[in-house]
Computed example of a mutant assay.
Amino acid sequence: MVDQVVVGGGVVGAAAARALAARGERVLLVEQHRRGHDKGSSHGASRIFRMGYADAEYVALCIRALDAWRALERASGRTLLDLTGAVDHGRPDQIAAIHAALTDAGIDHELLTPDEAAERWPGLAFEGHVLTHASAGRIRSADTVEALLDLAASDGAELRFGTRVTGVEDHGDSVTLTLDGPGGATSVTASGVVAAAGSWAPTLVGDVLRGRGASLPAIRVTQEQPAHFPSHLPDGAWPSFVHWQLDGPDVYGLLTPGEGVKVGFHGTGPVVDPDHRDFIPVPEELERLQAYVARFVPGVDARDPEPISCLYDNSPDDDFVMDRRGPVTVATGFSGHGFKFAPLLGEMLADLATGGTPHPRFALLD
Rank of each mutant, 00 (worst) to 15 (best):
D3N: 13
V5S: 08
A15I: 01
R18T: 03
E25S: 09
D38N: 13
K39S: 15
S42W: 00
M51H: 12
M51Q: 14
Y53K: 05
C62P: 08
S76A: 01
G77N: 05
D88S: 12
P92A: 12
A96S: 13
T103R: 12
E119Q: 14
W121F: 12
P122V: 10
L124H: 07
E127G: 11
E127I: 07
G128K: 01
H133P: 03
A134Y: 07
R140K: 08
L148N: 10
A152F: 00
S154L: 09
E158P: 00
G167D: 14
D170I: 03
S174P: 02
T178S: 10
G181N: 02
P182M: 08
A185S: 15
T186Y: 14
V188D: 04
S199G: 08
S199M: 07
L204A: 11
A214C: 10
V221A: 03
Q223C: 09
Q225S: 14
A227G: 03
H228S: 05
P239A: 14
V242M: 15
H243T: 06
D250C: 08
V263N: 03
G264L: 07
G267T: 04
G267Y: 08
D275P: 06
V282T: 15
P283K: 14
P283N: 12
A291N: 15
D304M: 12
P305T: 09
P307E: 08
Y312E: 00
D317Q: 04
D323I: 07
R324F: 03
D351L: 06
L352E: 04
L352M: 06
R361M: 13
A363P: 02
L365H: 14
D366V: 14
